[in-house]
Amino acid sequence: MDDSKVSQESEEFLLWQRFKIGDKEAFSRIYTKYAGILYNYGYHMLPDTYLVQDAIQDLFTDLWRMRQNLAHTTSIKYYLFRSLRRKIHRLSAGERLFDSFQEDDQDVGIPFVLSDEALRIERETTDEQILALQKALLKLPSRQLEAIRLRFFDGFELDQVADIMQMNEQSARNLIQRSLRKLRLSFDLLVMIYLFRYFF
C-alpha cells in the first residue's frame, strides 16, 4: 500500500472516530463529503429523487443515533453505501420497483446524458466507442450493472462489492464476469468500428 492511501485511510479513521464521540463538525463533514455520491448511487437503484433523499436523511439520522455503537472503519464510503442500499431496498420493497432476488430484472430506463467527464476523456473515436459501450452497459440486468458500477465507477474492491450487495465474493465475481462476457459482442463491434476508421 502506498503512502497516499495510508494517509487517506487514517484520515477517514480519525474523522469517523471524531464523529463517534459526538463531534457534530465531523458528522457534517462526512455528510458534505458523501451526500453527492450516495445520491448518485441511490438514484441509479431507485429513480425517485424524493425517496432517495428520504433514504439519505434516514441514513444520517440513524447514523447519529447509533454513533456510539458503530464499528471503527477506514472506509466511510463503503459503510454508507452498504447502509443506503439496505434503506433503499426497504423503501422500494413496498413499491415493488425491483426484486433483489431476481437475476435478470428489467431495465428501469435511466435517461442517458453524457457527463462532463465523458467529454473530457479523449476525443473523437474514443468518444464513439465509449458511447457504444455505455449503451451496451445500460442494457445489462440491473444487478449486473450495479456490480459493475460499484467496482469500476465507485472503485470498491470485489469483496466490498459483494458485501454491499449482500452476496459472497464468488457470486459477485461471477456477476461481473457474466456481464463482461455479455459485453464481448460489443467489444467485437468496437474493434470493427476502430478498424473501419483506421483503414478506410
Binding site: Y39, N40, Y43, P111, Q129, L133, R149
Partner: peptide, 11 residues
Amino acid sequence: NAVKSFPLFEL
C-alpha cells in the same frame, strides 16, 4: 473509462 464517465445524477 466508459463506466467512469457514466452520467452522474447530482444532488
